[in-house]
């Protein structure tokens, strides 16, 4: 069982949900970004999603676009992001999912990516613009199966398509809560519950719900229908607002802690 799957299982046994925190690597620089990532894990993120910034993030709203731009301006790239994962691994064992668009990974090379990502200590990969139909050209070149491929399900995904996605996914399935880009406002719980229930009827793979989640109440509500909760833009908004604050890591730590407190299995 992969570390990601094991993490979901352990939390389940403890009556808890997995808090998944997303952050863009290198925003605004490596040192500050590493401090933020550590604070996220120490504050309560069970899984860390490390975003490798892309110049043209077509599925992201203004907040993650801006964080990507700051990171790129600071010279971030895939190699350096893997270096950050390696640095995190000296003190932390929480699963790490690399998160990006396809082009930076294609440019790096599929096989090289697999080896280097594992060597750095990453556990999974999520590629926003790589639907399962196209994913084979990447995973087909991987020399092993030690990296989980996290796939997305959206409110627009019909049931038959969910079945195909589940067949190709591992670790967990990322359920997009709304029809929109990241950072969109308005969590529609009825919609989420409906999609999550359909998805649960086709697979046993754990589900993590993301997009539009920013408060402990959101976390509590989503905890009723899914095994994981992903928070991204909300972390990025705090980073943006406190980018020059020396206590940014402690603000992040506190925020993660309050979210974690409500990530409970009903």
């Amino acid at each position: 069982m992969s570390l990601i799957a094991q993490t979901f299982k352990n939390l389940e046994q403890k009556g808890r949900r997995a808090l998944v925190g997303f952050v863009t690597a290198g925003d605004p620089d490596i040192e500050k970004s590493l401090a933020v990532m550590e604070a996220m894990i120490e504050g309560g993120c069970d899984i860390l999603e490390v975003g490798i910034p892309f110049s043209d993030p077509t599925a992201d709203g203004p907040v993650i676009q801006a964080s990507s731009q700051r990171a790129l301006a600071g010279g971030m790239n895939l190699t350096k992001a893997l270096g950050m994962v390696k640095a995190l691994r000296q003190h932390h064992s929480a699963p790490i999912v690399l998160f990006s668009y396809y082009n930076p990974i294609l440019a790096y090379g599929a096989e090289r990516f697999y080896r280097d990502a594992l060597a750095a200590g990453a556990n999974g990969l999520l590629v926003v613009d790589l639907p399962f139909e196209e994913a084979g050209e990447l995973t087909g070149k991987w020399p092993g199966k030690d990296l989980d491929l996290i796939l997305l399900v959206a409110p627009t995904t019909p049931r038959e398509r969910m079945e195909q996605i589940a067949l190709n996914a591992s670790g967990f399935i990322y359920l997009v809560s709304m029809t929109g880009v990241t950072g969109s406002a308005g969590l529609d719980l009825e919609q989420v519950t409906h999609t999550a229930n359909t998805l649960k009827s086709v697979t046993d793979i754990p589900i993590a719900v993301g997009f539009g989640i920013s408060t402990p109440d959101h976390v509590a509500a989503v905890s009723k229908v899914a095994q994981g909760i992903v928070v991204g833009s909300a972390f990025e908004r705090i980073i943006e607002k406190n980018i020059n604050a020396t206590d940014l890591p402690s603000i992040i730590f506190q925020y993660a802690k309050t979210l974690k407190a409500t990530a409970l299995k009903p």
Binding site: E134, L151, L152, T156, T157, I165
Partner: peptide, 12 residues
């Protein structure tokens, strides 16, 4: 060619 888009758009 191909179809490299977010899952939300795939059904469309």
């Amino acid at each position: 060619g191909g179809r490299y888009v977010a899952e939300t758009l795939m059904p469309a």
